[in-house]
């Protein structure tokens, strides 16, 4: 066991997958000598050389587009997009090509690409360095979307993502890159894509969240003292409805928490699925604590935007009031 931060756990997963499979290549901006702007790839360029840890020209469309070619050519590219706000130029290659290649070639060209992307707010970063665009990609058929909320899951999920035969966007919640440590096995292990994690068990309500807000939910539960079952979704597509439904059938009450804007956020899909599959168990309307339907504000106001423990705590009391 090693006691690691989320950054270190990802770093370890990358090292181990690169040792194991020489088809794995990393590409992105500043990931080489500099070890990435968040130091996620620290030491990898020195260890594996500039052929496998590649500083590319400053072009996100280029990074994803060439990853597609690398994948077709038999490699397992792990591109990094420096911040979620710069997925914009990569969108076309991701959604018009990576997501569709397997289907439109009837399986001839699968896309084993893992796109690593730091995501979310709360670090006092400039504009376009704090967004939560996960729903856009959840809504894009052909892509899997993963977002770990703990070092253990980060390592296991990243290994699964790299080994997965389909394109995976691996969102890394930057607010908790170094927020806490956790025991992480030094050996390789996988956390399956598509399986949620029950963080705390409880009887009175179910909270569904992912990414950095999972920590806010834990704080809200601790402060409020209610018996809440907290589910960390971990995989956003395909998400684990089974775990959610089993919990909701027991508790009858649900709060969904995410940082992304509310309208058409993944919370909307989860709420609908709960309504469809657990209608007879529901005791209260499902509550959503989310980002507002606005542009993510500059950092002076980012705490007003983020669904912090206070707002989660209030929603918990409100679903219990029914």
């Amino acid at each position: 066991m090693a006691n690691l931060t989320l950054v270190q756990a990802i770093n370890l997963a990358l090292i181990q997958e690169m040792e194991l499979d020489d088809r794995v290549v990393l590409l992105g901006e500043d990931i080489g000598r500099n070890g990435g702007v968040f130091r996620v790839t620290e030491g990898l360029w020195q260890r594996f050389g500039a052929e496998r840890v590649v500083d590319t020209p400053l072009a996100e469309s280029g990074i994803i587009g060439t990853s597609i070619g690398l994948a077709m050519g038999g490699m397992r590219p792990v591109p990094e997009i420096q911040f979620e706000g710069f997925l914009g130029p990569a969108y076309d290659q991701l959604c018009s090509h990576a997501a569709r290649f397997r289907t439109r070639t009837r399986g001839r060209f699968p896309m084993p690409i893992t796109v690593r992307v730091p995501v979310g707010g709360g670090i006092h970063a400039p504009e376009l360095h704090s967004d939560s665009p996960e729903s856009i990609y959840v809504h894009t058929p052909g892509i899997k979307v993963v977002m770990p909320a703990s070092p253990y899951d980060a390592k296991g999920l990243l290994i699964s993502a790299i080994r997965d035969p389909d394109p995976v966007i691996f969102f890394e919640p930057k607010r908790i890159y170094r927020a806490f440590r956790e025991d992480v096995p030094e050996d390789e292990y996988t956390v399956p894509i598509g399986k949620a994690r029950v963080v705390t068990e409880g009887d009175d309500l179910t909270i569904v969240s992912w990414g950095a807000p999972v920590v806010d939910c834990m704080n809200a539960i601790e402060a409020g003292g209610r018996s809440a079952e907290l589910i960390d979704l971990r995989t956003l597509y395909p998400f684990d409805m089974e775990t959610i439904a089993a919990s909701v059938r027991r508790t009858g009450r649900v709060v969904i928490v995410h940082e992304a804007p509310r309208t058409c956020g993944l919370g909307a899909e989860i709420a609908t699925r709960i309504m469809e599959e657990c209608f007879l168990s529901l005791e209260a309307p499902i509550q959503r604590v989310t980002g507002f339907d606005t542009i993510m504000p500059y950092y002076k106001l980012e705490l007003d935007y983020l669904p912090g423990a206070d707002r989660v705590g209030r929603a918990i009391e409100e679903v219990l009031a029914y």
Binding site: V255, R262, A284, P285, Q287, R288, V289, T290, G291, F292, D293, T294, D304, P307, R311, R314, A315, E318, A321, Y322
Partner: peptide
Amino acid sequence: RQRDTMRTSSLGQDP
């Protein structure tokens, strides 16, 4: 409504 209540949950419903 979101601005005036600074909330995204339970808008318009009273337990």
